[in-house]
Design a protein around this nucleic acid. Structure first.
Lengths: 199, 199
DNA sequence: CGTATGGCAATACAACTGACCTGTAAAAAC
DNA sequence: GTTTTTACAGGTCAGTTGTATTGCCATACG
């Protein structure tokens, strides 16, 4: 049975089991035993790959951040030339919002991590690092639109990018709480973009 | 009858101890023993006032919501006639943002509850109920401003109110994460209001 | 006075937590 | 072929969790 094994691949599989639990029961409700059971392995095996629970949490957060960043970047790079900045921004926003069940699960995991990160310096650094990247990405598109005259020239790209990110975050929270539906969240984001894109 | 005690007053005192813990360690880290110790009472006494942990959580959430609603309403009613709608909106937003340590604690408690509420139907109903009230309040001020010609007449008050609430929520999240400072959060909110208040 | 009852302390308890420690078997290195 | 390393299963451990039980005390009513 034992053989040479890809450590990172095993860790990723364990992290995905953790997400499945975190998206339904929350991060705190995920014990090592629960994660091991969800991953279909023994507690001993899990501990072979993660020396402590904290290690597992940090790895899973890094992994989720990496995947999210890759998804957004892929979408933007795949359509950076042809479509308008507005389309790119709207699609990015749509991908960040919990519009389908899969995206909802991902957002629940990130929210669970967010709360943990507020009280844990080690996690906070990882949780923060994605934001400037996303802001730069959004600001670039806004600058492009300003150059094309689609956005008023007196707007500050960085400010508008930050506002958009914060708005999406709030929309996500209230969508997760069922305060409004995914469709309403998207409509609200569109309303915001409508007013951003006025010469 | 033996000596009579104000049950609700005791419960409120216990709830406040719970908040103090939740704002530093998070809600999950708050065991019944910890809360009792923080409140300066015995575990037995705490159990006398809350039959289960769930009861305590629900009561504390109702209490925090009630206090927050009362604070915002008091601020608005105290200055509904004289100041402009914009001032009222800005002050309400400023009060909701985690600008000082006390407000930061309150926001941490609400965030902790939010995450819990996503997975718990019982809490979710309580967490949701404050939003429509706040939206109506904001929408009223926006309507007033539109009547005075300070806001373009083609804006939808309910949409704008919801956007503002979501934005504040996102600003709060990222401020708690130290992604930006309280001052920057307020400046961002002002930037949004600047663009809302354009005839 | 007696006793029922609200207020509370102390303790017990079963379930669960994460960390640690083996034992063992297979693959890799020599 | 021997040794070393890797991969895992299983168990133990001390500590913590929410809940339940018991009993003592003070008071107010009959």
């Amino acid at each position: 049975m034992p053989k040479r094994v890809d450590h990172d691949e095993r860790r990723r599989r364990i992290a995905e089991a953790l997400w499945r639990i975190a998206s339904t029961r929350g991060l705190e409700g995920a014990s090592l035993r629960d994660v091991a059971a969800e991953a279909g392995i023994s507690l001993g095996q899990l501990q072979h790959y993660f020396r402590s629970k904290g290690d597992m949490l940090v790895f899973a957060l890094e992994h989720v951040n990496e995947l999210a960043a890759r998804r957004v970047r892929a979408r933007v790079e795949a359509s950076a030339t042809a479509p308008s900045p507005r389309v790119i921004l709207r699609e990015s926003v749509a991908e960040m919002l919990p519009l389908d069940d899969e995206s909802r699960s991902g957002n629940l995991v990130q929210v669970a991590y967010f709360l943990q990160a507020v009280h844990d310096e080690r996690l906070r650094e990882h949780a923060k690092e994605g934001v400037p990247l996303l802001r730069a990405l959004f600001a670039d598109q806004i600058r492009r639109a300003m150059a094309e005259g689609q956005i008023a020239p007196d707007r500050d790209p960085d400010t508008e990018a930050t506002l958009l990110i914060c708005l999406v975050d709030g929309l996500t929270s209230y969508t997760l709480l069922d305060v409004h539906s995914p469709a309403e969240a998207l409509a609200l984001a569109d309303a915001h973009l409508d007013r951003l894109f006025t010469p």
